[in-house]
Nucleic acid binder design. Structure first.
Lengths: 166, 166
DNA sequence: TATTGTTATACTCTATAACTATA
DNA sequence: TATAGTTATAGAGTATAACAATA
């Protein structure tokens, strides 16, 4: 995820956003993200993980949880670099939420297992973030919120313009 | 704006995003932003400004252009810190696209004027970015794209949960 | 005293390059 | 040779704190 402490962005004044900027997609996306991060932050404060760690646990544990991913596979799912994943796993392992286990079939790889505590943290944090999302998206109405998320998924699922589908 | 060179995010593989993550709003927003930044980057390469500078010029020039904003006022419209604005204006001024003029009525303030060259750059870059947006949002259809942007505006316009409306 | 612009500085996030060990 | 994980490093972006000029 990306609910980091550095998504600061000074609080916008009243009568905001100005019309000209409200047309610019990058502006809208940037500040939607910043606003959501602000909403998430206090809700996550009592939890043992932050938004990015929730993302990693979600990628690893998923709803099924029956998969055993390597660090690199998890990184690919999150679309982050494998070097970034190292520190993320370090943090989660220090908290006892995941455990690295060398893959017996290919000892270069680390299988990352979500521990029982990790699964608990994942479930708790997921419930929290879902509540925050619901509150955040409330202005769109129930249908609007659903369509909004679907639109985002559609944008991500559609192939990048430079790499058609090779 | 935020189409920066640091929005790297490794290219996602096929069959992406995975279902569990496709539910997470922060994940969706982060990657929508990253994808859009990727789409903008090559289109902006031949221009003299980048996405953030377009944001500043847009805030300053607006569609009307009849306003004379101080650095701080522009920063507030963009919801960035006034110290961040300093370097942004420095860059634009070096390129001759804006000009700082002390406000005769309050000599602490700098009125930032968009020059003729700045207006030209603004117009050109706006046309480019609008084309990129249209292509990026194409998967949603024309109506879907419009509703999507409206939803984003609605989310930004609605008051932050901690600061109801004081 | 408070505010605007400024500078110096620090912090977060993330990637690139190089190294180790396995394959 | 190529790949997974690791480490060190660098860069972008942005904020906080302190200072000067002005109000």
């Amino acid at each position: 995820m990306s609910g980091s402490a550095q998504d600061h962005t000074p609080a916008p004044p009243d009568g905001w956003p100005p019309a000209a900027l409200a047309e610019r997609l990058s502006f809208l996306l940037k500040h939607a993200q910043a606003r959501f991060a602000e909403a998430v932050e206090p809700a996550f404060a009592p939890l043992e993980i932050d938004g990015r760690e929730l993302g990693v646990l979600t990628a690893l544990g998923g709803p099924a949880g029956g998969e055993r991913l390597s660090q690199q596979e998890a990184a690919q799912r999150l679309a982050i670099d494998r070097t970034t994943m190292v520190a993320l796993i370090d943090g989660l392992e220090d908290k006892g939420l995941v455990q690295r286990r060398p893959d017996p079939r290919d000892r270069r790889r680390n299988i990352v297992e979500v521990t029982a505590a990790g699964r608990q943290a994942l479930d708790r944090a997921t419930a929290v973030v879902e509540a925050v999302e619901q509150r955040f998206l409330a202005p769109l109405g129930e249908d609007g919120a659903r369509r909004f998320k679907q639109a985002l998924v559609a944008l991500l699922a559609s192939p990048a313009p430079d790499a058609p589908d090779d």
